[in-house]
Design a protein around this nucleic acid. Sequence first.
DNA 1: CATCGTTATTCTTAAATAGGTATAACGATT
DNA 2: AATCGTTATACCTATTTAAGAATAACGATG
Lengths: 118, 118
Amino acid sequence: MPTTKQKLSLNADGRIWITTPEGKFVGKGRIELLEKIKQFGSIRQAALAMQMSYRQAWQLIDDMNSKAKTPLVISSRGGKGGGSAVVTEKGEQLIVLFIAFNKKFQQFLARQDKGFGF
Amino acid sequence: MPTTKQKLSLNADGRIWITTPEGKFVGKGRIELLEKIKQFGSIRQAALAMQMSYRQAWQLIDDMNSKAKTPLVISSRGGKGGGSAVVTEKGEQLIVLFIAFNKKFQQFLARQDKGFGF
DNA sequence: CATCGTTATTCTTAAATAGGTATAACGATT
DNA sequence: AATCGTTATACCTATTTAAGAATAACGATG
């Protein structure tokens, strides 16, 4: 048997995000961060769970909150537990919106790479 | 007239690329590079036209060629003009493939952000 | 009123990335 | 065999980016 020409297996890949006129608003990472904050009620714990530095987590949230007219996360310091952070109703809406968007995108990708004979 | 609640204008955005089992194969930038090489017949001129360093252009092509079983670009040095580079038939096929893929993606994005009331 | 863990912020360091410079190899053309 | 502009490659430097360390502010709770 002679050597057959191996077809190169190609796959469609990509990333999506949502922008405001001021630039990037949310992508996969930021949405995951919002979800973790919702889960733990804490920026620090959320960051820890994602192996992200608190510093970066705080900056991302600060950026999101300043771009959204209504804050997505409300935080408070001191008191029981040292402080806390909660995802607002707007924040939860955004999570839902992005997840739906991303699901459609993944389906789009899966459709595409079936036609990638090469 | 009281202050009306300004709706935040959101837009869907993203990037796509094609991968092999060894990692990223081509995206928008690499395809554009292939197109410029086809146009000029020279890696250096192609890089110049894209405001890309020759170094980076060469590395990108080297990476693509080593991932593809059949080279996408064939270069030669010396001779008339100092040397040259041509995009192979496989390379041209890949350009067509990616452009079609990307066009569908742009249409997908345009469809999505119509539903972004926020 | 001392403790606690978190939020909020600044400053310094390290790591990753990109870019520039330099130079050899090459072969048609003159 | 000298010239030319390009390919090919190594090496060094700067820029950007991310990470880490340190510290003040905070308020419920005991």
